[in-house]
Design a protein around this nucleic acid. Sequence first.
RNA 1: CGGGAUGUAGCGUAGCCCGGUUAUCGCGCCUGGUUUGGGACCAGGAGGUCGCAAGUUCGAAUCUUGCCAUCCCGACCA
Length: 492
Amino acid sequence: MSKELTTRAEDYSQWYNDLVLKSGLADHSSVRGCMVIKPYGFALWENMRDQLDKMFKETGHVNAYFPLFVPKSLFEAEEKNAEGFAKECAIVTHYRLKADPNNKGKLMVDPDAKLEEELIIRPTSEAIIWNTYKGWIQSYRDLPILINQWANVVRWEMRTRLFLRTAEFLWQEGHTAHATKQEAVEETERMLDVYADFVEEYMAVPVIKGIKTPNERFAGAEETYCIEAMMQDGKALQAGTSHFLGQNFAKAFDVKFSDKNNTLDYVWATSWGVSTRLIGALIMAHSDDQGLIMPPKIAPIQVVIVPVYKGEESKAVIDEKAQGIINELKALGIRVKYDNNDNSRPGWKFAEYELKGVPVRIALGLRDIENNVVELARRDTKEKKSQSMDGLAAYVNQLLADIQQQMYDKAVAFQTEHTTACDSWDEFVKLLDEKGGFVSAHWDGTAETEEKIKEQTKATIRCIPLNNVQESGSCILTGKPSTQRVLFARAY
RNA sequence: CGGGAUGUAGCGUAGCCCGGUUAUCGCGCCUGGUUUGGGACCAGGAGGUCGCAAGUUCGAAUCUUGCCAUCCCGACCA
């Protein structure tokens, strides 16, 4: 069959690509590096987005929207930020096309329509937002500003992968302004917690909260906090970041406020974001060689009902019985799909919904109706059993909760199993090559050492875990004294 | 952006080295029928700018050049 996947053992990257395409999450587009998110993939994103949006609002944030274009002069105002993104910016230089006199029916860029000032297509929005905040903030009474925006951004990547790294991607970016450093730091940490809670509770992917080394820090930030997740191939994936921006942007855009004593000071800032990359994390953390495995809480379809019938007559009986089950499930808020499409047969549907990762499948035939049961199959364990129709909805509701929990537990076990403490260089290299995962090792704290380790092993410091145990040791590479272990891994 | 590979119907492919009627096969698709508890079967049918553009040639899927896209490996990165 054309729908068969490359297995993970054969070729992990190919498996991932096959899975994204064949499960109907996304397609390649005719634009280099850009993908089409298909309805099934977008439904997943909507569920993630809606939950995150709710959590942002519960923590006092409101949504707004800022322009896609950033004038170059604004973009370059915060130098480090601009420098960090300069290499991957798309730039608008003209505003008009015209008929090409030398090429009938074709268009050309009108050389007379060159912009006075180039517009950068936002790779992130700090510049345009802080330029705007300048006009909004005069007094401590104007603070804090707690704004989030759902948007697309463009980063002109050399090498792209569906969901993990595309030239254009969807994300949310929170941009907050505060009167004090402490408040801004608290905000940064609060949003990191929101991300960690979301990814663990809704996506069933355990994460390590930590801070980035200066090397890996967001351009223009004082401190970058992150959540790091572990994929099934032992590679790490940065799932979200939250930045304490200090007064860097306030200084760059001259955003000052008067405090209660009428003293002027620069405003303190944070920014934080997660993107459609999370979908890549979801896929690589849970799925298997048969297809996706969706955590129930964000699965576009939580339960699919497949009728098994012979002829129109039995179909009518089953349709009616199924409708009763659907009503009960919907009453509990369960997202259910009844696939009574006559064009494909049950076996085909079973395989198809396994590929799409639907957590629970109910098969319903005359035989079941006679016995007052349904065939219930769960995607994560492939377990199949006969279940009484009495109290079915409540049972399924609990089953979905169990699946969610077990998927998380399984991922936690994997992460624990693939986190190894290590004190010798030879073992360090061997671990990265043979076992993968996080390697917890001492580091002398210098960028030079970090760089050398990266050159020799391709592993980077994923983060310095929050609340890290302080212990004296010696650097894995240089043997110099160290006060704590950091997490190394090869990463996406 | 550097090195390598690939591109033939919606998908997977044969043909290409060695140019020559109407481009092969399977899946999928359409019509009719029989079916339906793990990717059904029979019969008939439709579907192709051979990635795109130039060139060589009487003639190009096949040879040459350029471009585009995808994958793998590097550099870069959420």
